[in-house]
Design a binder for these strands. Structure first.
Length: 393
DNA sequence: AAGCCGTGGCA
DNA sequence: TTGCCAAGGCT
């Protein structure tokens, strides 16, 4: 039995009707003409160096263009080649990444850079299959680098592309589900311009970022509105389909700015798993571990640690860190930090370290004058600003 | 498969 | 204020 290569099983399965060849070619031309005229002038569009394209694509993961631009300039300026990246100490990399978030991205880049040095002699691999094997490079980024840097007709399906295609074809798939991406990739394989695959992919993303946006979407302003089934059928408000996310869970911490007799603050490196893994934070103690069952009944003043909780805290610091401290029971300040899936409520207190003995957790002592030399995640920076803030009367 | 991983911007 | 969203990948 011979396979019918004119049919696409995945598109058939979801009853998606692809356009005929003439319409596809007209679409390519309309989209690329618009792109040639309207494309955004971005730093990584002034190079064809796969290393630079790669760096930009990693930074752009779940991060907006305007945020990325200064980070990209500084990163490429500091580490102009993949060899520089492979040889850079992790602290230097994290300092360049500080504030961008998702810090495993840059750690993975260093691993990938070493893969390229060891397996490809420092030359970025040119084949999509090889690129996909690099640490931190998934289906989207492999497609982006392949098409943009090496002119290969590979799909690069991100949130923009899924939103654009959902509206163009009235696709009812939930774009939040991982399995949906493959369907959109099959569509792109048929749509992509074989002569300008990189520009085609970028044009679709530009369209999603500037015209076919999640909010304030006006389909009549689109350069490809004639191709847009959801516009022609006035169903565009239904697309894309996306399930709403679950709310962040809240966690409350006492954060301690503990200073030793040399004027240094105590920090802790978070574990290798979980949020902010391997990053420096002030000592944080989960209040749910400290509080008694009915603490709310007798605890009135939120700026003061209740006596029982303070006692437990003191014991905890001795046991976990080997620290004897004198905590000033007057809240220095409070702040919140919101992650994608959780929310931290931080109450900040200061204290003096009276005695240190070996504890189960290692501490790092950093003098205020040296603070800027270390990479810190934003929550640590927020707490730092509160602790060192000069109070004006 | 679905939950985890940061941060800033915006209505 | 709150929730959503952004050029996703890993486990």
């Amino acid at each position: 039995m011979t396979k019918d290569t004119t049919k696409n099983n995945l598109l058939d399965k979801y009853n998606i009707a692809m356009w005929e060849e003439g319409k596809i070619e007209a679409f390519r031309q309309r989209l690329l003409t618009w792109y040639d005229k309207q494309k955004r002038d971005l730093p990584w569009r002034q190079t064809s160096d796969p290393y630079c394209i790669w760096v930009s694509e990693i930074m752009l993961q779940q991060t907006q263009v305007n945020t990325v631009i200064p980070y990209y300039e500084r990163f490429i300026g500091t580490l102009p080649t993949i060899k520089d990246l492979a040889e850079a100490p992790e602290d230097v990399l994290l300092k360049l990444w500080e504030g961008l978030g998702y810090y495993s991205r840059v750690r993975n880049m260093k691993v990938a850079a070493n893969q390229v040095m060891n397996e490809y002699g420092g030359l970025f691999p040119t084949e999509h299959k090889q690129i996909l094997k690099l640490k931190g490079i998934g289906p989207y980024t492999a497609g982006a680098v392949s098409s943009i840097a090496f002119n290969q007709p590979e799909p690069a399906v991100d949130g923009n592309v899924m939103r654009v295609l959902s509206r163009l074809f009235e696709i009812d798939l939930d774009i939040g589900k991982a399995s949906s991406r493959k369907v959109f990739e099959e569509m792109i394989r048929l749509l992509i311009d074989p002569d300008r695959p990189g520009d085609f992919n970028q044009a679709l993303m530009d369209l999603g970022a500037t015209v076919c946006t999640p909010k304030n979407y006006h389909p009549e302003t689109s350069p490809v509105r004639d191709f847009n089934a959801s516009y022609l059928n006035d169903s565009w408000k239904n697309y894309p389909v996306k399930k709403s996310k679950t709310k962040q869970t809240e966690e409350e911490y006492i954060v301690l700015g503990l200073i030793n007799n040399q004027g240094e603050y105590a920090f802790e490196k978070r574990g290798s798993k979980g949020v902010l893994s391997g990053m420096l934070v002030f000592i944080m103690v989960d209040r749910s571990l400290l509080r008694q069952k009915n603490w709310k009944e007798f605890h009135q003043d939120p700026s003061v640690i209740e006596a029982n909780e303070l006692e437990t805290l003191t014991r905890y610091l001795k046991q976990e860190y080997g620290l004897e401290v004198n905590i000033k029971n007057e809240r220095k300040g409070k702040c919140t930090h919101i992650f994608s899936h959780l929310k931290w409520q931080l109450d900040i207190y200061e204290g003096m370290i009276l005695n240190e003995s070996p504890g189960s957790r290692e501490l790092h002592y950093i003098h205020p004058d040296a603070f800027d030399r270390h990479p810190f995640p934003v929550p640590t920076q927020k707490v730092w600003d509160l602790i060192t803030k000069i109070t004006l009367f």
